[in-house]
Design a protein around this nucleic acid. Structure first.
Ligand code: FES
Ligand code: FES
Lengths: 148, 148
DNA sequence: TTGACGTGGATAGAATATGTCCGAGTAAAC
DNA sequence: GTTTACTCGGACATATTCTATCCACGTCAA
């Protein structure tokens, strides 16, 4: 199991944006974290599609959060960047091969899939318990604002 | 985030093995589930390295569980097949770029990394709460044993 | 002796993640 | 209103990983 590296970038960008009072360009956000401008832009686009950040074009444009940092959970960002697909995908192998179960036993989802789904639910619940505002409180907000 | 498809194969194989009273060859396990023999063999080797199954070589050889199904958790199988690396890997981008935090502020792990680690802990805890024996109780054991 | 089986590595192909590029469009400045 | 600089957005390569296959070898039971 592997999570896209862009997740770390995106969350940190959201924390920085929560400290800014005006839109920040994608290139500036990349410089602040020392990462690829163009690749970060791709993830910012994903955040925009998810409705987490609002892009403004033209000169002095950039990205800004669409709502209060306390209303954006870490899960929102992770789902936007990494995609909403669950990590475990059941391919219904119980219906294939020599010991294929009859269809009437497959109305209920496979027990294995249920366990994996429950675990992912716990994972998402944990991520949803922290907001960008919570994370912003753990960093030096003054230093971030001074770097604008 | 994506989980290896071999995880599904491996868990189902462990459930089948819990119903068997003698070693089952890897090729037979593949036929039972209708999957690639050679690729499944690779995952079975991973299970063997993790000490979950015990291979027996030579004629009439095969794989058997090393301990009671009640002592093997789903997490054990997932870690064996998918690897022990955490899904989220912090690259310490807070120490890079224009707003690099000074080292004295980086003694504690980044708050973002803490949140992600806590979520993965919840995921693993959930997986560790179910054993192969629990899963075996949800399938038709008679049908499996009849297919031997 | 023989045949079946697991082990490990080497080897392709497919899918995905990562990184880069340039054009269309926009808003500010003059 | 024109110019200009700046932005986003998607299309385009590259690298890494996952998936799948094959073969040579050692092992064990019949
Ligand atoms: S058939 Fe997919 S998890 Fe059991
Ligand atoms: S620096 Fe890696 S998660 Fe914050």
């Amino acid at each position: 199991m592997k999570l896209s590296a862009g997740v770390e970038w995106a969350i940190h960008c959201c924390v920085v944006l929560s400290q800014a009072d005006r839109p920040l360009p994608g290139g500036r956000l990349a410089e602040l974290h020392g990462v690829s401008k163009t690749y970060l832009a791709k993830h910012l686009q994903a955040l925009a599609r998810a409705g987490i950040v609002q892009p403004s074009e033209g000169r002095d444009g950039g990205y800004a959060l669409t709502r209060d940092p306390g209303g954006i959970t870490v899960l929102d960002v992770v789902r936007a960047v990494d995609g909403p697909d669950p990590a475990f995908r059941c391919t219904e192998i119980r219906q294939q091969g020599d010991l294929a179960a009859p269809p009437e036993e497959c109305r209920r989802p496979c027990g294995v899939a249920q366990v994996m789904a429950e675990a992912e639910r716990a994972w998402r619940t944990s991520l949803a318990g922290t907001t960008i505002a919570d994370l912003a409180a753990t960093v030096d907000g003054d230093a971030v604002r001074a770097a604008l």
